[in-house]
Computed example of a mutant assay.
Amino acid sequence: MAKTSRFGRGCLVGGCLGVLLVVGVIVAIVVAVGGSGSGPSSPASSSASGPLTGSNNTDHPPAADVTVAGCETNAAKFPVAHLEIRNNTSKASTYFVSVEFTNPSGTRLGEGIVSSAAVTPGQLVKTDVSDIVEVSGAIQCRVTRVDRVAA
Rank of each mutant, 00 (worst) to 15 (best):
V22Y: 09
V22N: 07
V23P: 05
V23F: 12
V23Q: 10
V25Q: 12
A28I: 06
A28R: 08
I29W: 12
V30Q: 12
V31R: 12
V31P: 03
V31G: 04
A32W: 13
A32L: 13
V33H: 06
V33A: 08
G34H: 07
G34Q: 10
G35Q: 06
G35T: 11
S38P: 03
S38M: 08
S38D: 14
G39P: 06
G39R: 09
P40R: 15
S42D: 08
S42G: 12
A44T: 10
A44L: 11
S46R: 04
S46E: 00
S46W: 00
S46M: 00
S46K: 02
S47H: 02
A48V: 13
A48K: 11
G50T: 03
T53G: 00
G54M: 02
N56W: 13
N56R: 13
T58D: 08
D59P: 03
D59C: 06
H60G: 02
H60F: 14
H60R: 13
H60A: 10
P61M: 02
P62W: 02
P62E: 01
A64D: 15
A64Y: 02
D65N: 05
D65G: 03
D65R: 04
V68L: 03
V68Y: 01
G70Y: 05
C71A: 01
E72D: 09
T73H: 11
T73M: 07
N74L: 06
A75H: 04
A75M: 04
A76M: 13
